[in-house]
Design a protein around this nucleic acid. Structure first.
Lengths: 332, 332
DNA sequence: CTGAAAGCGCTTACAG
DNA sequence: CTGAAAGCGCTTACAG
């Protein structure tokens, strides 16, 4: 192994001077700097990350916790985080929130493996863990929030998104609306549902109990739920799904039953994952601005790492409706 | 910050003894151990990862380099890696191979940020980097290989996969076959193509130049390529796509043009991503056993970390054909 | 501008 | 079985 001591020897300077050159300190003669630089490549020096971390208490790594990556929204978000972290010179350590991912991530933050942590899938069960961690480590919640928790939280304006879809349905004459919701307790589910209900109410409509079905955020559950809705008599003519994956399952169910979309039923999702634009789905949905989300989340996390005393930030990204052919092609 | 010294003070023992208890050394009295354990929780001790790494030269982190995560195959693979790494008590550091990901990963390996590295998207351009790195760090190539490189490589038996699809087409009476291939130089593209051509040849068929179209591994390029193939006179009646994403683009193109699948044209992909089973696609494809791939890759990487002198392993996973309704529903 | 030195928090021979 | 000590490879005051 080549250490800074070896470089110092080759350059005929002290080890401290090598460190200074590496750190870009201005308190070094050009001549000295040149000799050190030459020695650096001559001996093939590579700095040791652990030693540097031990001194600086900074690793340059940021942890990200995401859900089972089988929902394409998370890979999207992940790509955005990866690009952003790269651009600010940080590495990404990844945990899957299914299984012990959150615990491992929390432990990593406490042990100083990462400088901070982004949670994208905070669930009701994770509240105690995250609440405790927030006191000792830099963390930011993204996508799913934990209401009332005093830490940085950046999420889609889910309620407004749901409201807009309700208004869109109502404005186009739908009176029998349905919803396929995600798991209760997740802020995304709860807020989208509440917004949708509020929007219907504002239009003088209501969401009948039989027309509200709940499942996991999966294609399979969307599929099953849509079959259930289409079996109603009369079936709903417009269905709001709590995310795109559910909506794609719903579309596939309609396809299988010979129900035409949008002629017989409108289907709407949430997230605007890339596949939503494919001909196979052509799905009207509410956009989540993943690039902005990742950018702001990372900026905020770095800010918090630098200053733990910052007041908690709660930010909502606007919920824009993207109209495609799974609804009649009129503006929302 | 609470250090092992604080624990020692609280337990009335030396700092070394605390270390021994933490390391599970048998050379500690039960009584002493109990006192230390009590002190541990009393003072809220958390070990410092950097200090431990500095001594042991082990971080417990493994790096994984994957492609733009917009191809659902990579999230699949990633989930499998995440689960496996978790089960062996390792963390995952992730890089996106688009952009400077490979360089950053290589640097991280050299600086000791990770104990080893998995590359899933080795490209021809990355050969020098990977070849140099293989001499100083533990790395394993997965999915895409770099032929002739002396390092561990675990890949699908792409050639046999292509061959089987050709045989399947031929056995079902197709004489005008087409292929939509990925970028030249990627082992996955090259090998699947070579296998497909060999299989056709073995059946007395040939792949006409107009019926061979190349593009990126994307839905959009699959879409465009399929339009091109369907514009031929006569068009091919069976098309092998170098991966599922391309095949889904091809299916969407067929859908848009009113070409019925499989009645007018068969479409086959590669990878067997979960979406391939959805009704929207119902895609015949060649399976990649992602769980086994991740398991074996990690086991091998840990083996190599433990013993750098191991001879390079080149392993091929069997290429099983999964028949669905994008081809007539007869066994392959 | 440069060097000698301390110290980050551990692990692990070395004594006893 | 336990403690005192060395040392992993850096960064950064402290002198000069």
């Amino acid at each position: 192994l080549v250490t800074s001591r070896d470089v110092a020897r080759a350059a005929g300077v002290s080890q401290a001077t090598v460190s200074r050159v590496l750190a870009g300190s201005p308190r070094v003669t050009d001549a000295t700097r040149a000799r050190v630089l030459a020695a650096l490549t001559e001996v093939g020096y590579v700095p040791n990350a652990a030693a540097r971390t031990m001194r600086t208490r900074r690793t340059g790594s940021i942890g990200v916790v995401v859900a089972r990556i089988t929902n394409p929204f998370y890979p999207e978000l992940l790509t955005a985080f990866s690009a952003k972290l790269d651009s600010v010179g940080r590495r990404m350590v990844l945990w899957d929130s299914s299984g012990p991912g959150e615990q491992s991530a929390a432990a990593a933050a406490r042990e100083g493996v990462v400088d901070g942590l982004v949670f994208t899938t905070a669930a009701p069960e994770s509240r105690p863990l995250i609440a405790a961690l927030a006191r000792q480590a830099a963390i930011v919640l993204v996508n799913r929030s934990l209401p009332d928790l005093a830490c940085d939280q950046l999420t889609s304006d889910n309620a407004t998104g749901g409201e807009r879809i309700a208004a869109y349905f109502a404005a186009n004459g739908h009176t029998r609306c349905g919803m396929i919701c995600g798991p209760a307790g997740f802020s995304t589910s709860d807020e989208r549902e509440a917004g949708f209900r509020a929007g219907l109410r504002a239009a003088g409509l209501e969401l009948h109990d039989e027309a509200f079905v709940r499942g996991e955020y999966s294609h399979a559950d969307g599929h099953a739920a849509m079959r259930q809705l289409l079996a109603l008599d009369p079936p709903p003519t417009a269905v709001f799904c709590a995310n795109d994956l559910i909506a794609m399952g719903a579309l596939d169910a309609a396809r299988a039953l010979g129900v035409r979309v949008p002629d017989d039923a409108w289907v709407v999702g949430y997230d605007d994952i890339p596949m939503a634009a494919w001909e196979a789905f052509d799905l009207t949905t509410v956009r989540q601005p993943v690039t902005e989300i990742a950018d702001r989340a990372v900026d905020r996390l770095l800010g918090r790492i630098a200053d733990a005393a910052l007041p908690p930030l709660h930010h909502r990204f606007p919920a824009d409706v993207i109209v495609r052919r799974s609804t009649a092609h009129t503006a929302a």
